[in-house]
């Protein structure tokens, strides 16, 4: 049971990771003047879209998401609306945090907001896919030792890696190298993406490595 779950996770993560690569490569072939640095926001939203679509598809197919209690249309719609609301709120939350970290308040708001959209996609959206719009469950997963399945652990790892990646990505900004990737918010978005990819790779490996120590309380 363990191995199969880890294998499923590894393949799911591989698909998500490849979607990030596709989102970078495909527009470069199709769209003219596409570049990660110069048309950064286009790249950013293409990555966001790809990751979101693939996440929803993969987790929908795998059936990891908590089963809805009622299969009525009304319930589904309310779930969807709630998810969208949560996503928007998390965007605003990340935006506020980034501004607190010193991003300009009035200028380059679009860039800052795009960064928070990316962060939300990499963290909140996965939570929504795995746990549903259930804040109690989120708090449980992200409090210490709150994981109850391999998916929870992977969620912890990928979300943590993305945020830490964005955090680390802010370090090169003060350097006076005048490189194109030092422009706000490119280094942070790149950091977040690289962190996310690292998390995708690290999660199955870490779980595999620690599978003896990991004992989840049954649901």
């Amino acid at each position: 049971m363990w191995d199969s779950e880890i294998r499923a996770m590894a393949s799911a993560h591989a698909i998500i990771a490849s979607s990030v690569f596709m989102a970078t490569v495909v527009p470069a072939v199709l769209v003219e003047n596409f570049s990660v640095y110069r048309t950064h926001l286009v790249w950013l939203y293409s990555v966001c879209g790809a990751v979101a679509a693939v996440n929803v598809a993969v987790f929908g197919l795998l059936g990891v998401s908590p089963p809805a209690k009622k299969h009525t249309l009304h319930h589904k719609v309310s779930r969807l609306v709630k998810s969208c609301l949560h996503f928007l709120l998390s965007c605003l939350f990340f935006h506020a945090v980034v501004v607190l970290y010193g991003a300009p308040l009035l200028e380059s708001t679009l860039e800052t907001f795009s960064l928070s959209v990316l962060l939300s996609t990499l963290t909140t959206l996965r939570c929504l896919c795995v746990l549903g719009p259930n804040v109690q469950a989120w708090i449980r997963v992200f409090s210490r030792d709150g994981a109850m399945s391999v998916w929870d652990t992977s969620l912890q790892i990928t979300a943590g890696c993305s945020v830490v990646g964005a955090w680390l990505g802010a370090f090169p900004i003060p350097l006076d190298w005048d490189r194109p990737w030092q422009v706000w918010p490119i280094s942070c978005t790149l950091g977040a993406t690289v962190g996310f990819l690292t998390g995708l790779v690290a999660a199955p490996v870490w779980i595999h490595w620690h599978r003896k120590q990991l004992t989840y309380k049954s649901k």
Binding site: L100, Y101, G102, A170, I173, P174, L175, D176
Partner: peptide, 17 residues
């Protein structure tokens, strides 16, 4: 790093946050 010395306040604000 000379840049980080010049911009040391950024380091501290970041850490404090």
């Amino acid at each position: 790093s000379s840049s980080f010395v010049e911009e040391e306040h950024q380091t501290w604000y970041f850490l404090l946050n």
